[in-house]
Amino acid sequence: MNRLAWAALALLVVVAVVVAATQAGDSSPRARANALAEEIQCPECDGVSVAQSLAPTSRAIVRDLRRRVAAGESDDDIRAAYVERYGESIRLNPEGDGLGLLVWGLPVTLVLAGAGALVFASRRWRREPLMHATGADEELVERARRDDA
């Protein structure tokens, strides 16, 4: 009964996620332009994307992005055009090559390595028989108790 309840829940969640995943992925021109606007920095204000800024230049860039998308330019072409004009700092999303490999890859690698280490440690712990406290351990506990007395 309980297993059934968990299994039903798992099924529900999986189906929901799959349905949501298939519905996602809007590649209409407008969605593409909006996505690009999220990663182009407002040239007049630090750190804010043109999608979020009401500055006149930002509005002009959003219009320009829509025009370029409508004219059939690819996302990469549009990014390249902006980098060529304003320099790399116009993009809020750093490039994933060269040094950029570091900024994208390193956190992922470290999380995976950390998770791996935890799994490894927990396996080893489970394989080993339960340790008995050594003399050093007891001494430590004793000292910790004394610390607080």
Partner: peptide
């Protein structure tokens, strides 16, 4: 059309 503003990559 803001094409000069954008073309010259002005920031202000």
């Amino acid at each position: 059309g803001a094409n000069a503003t954008l073309g010259f990559a002005t920031r202000g």
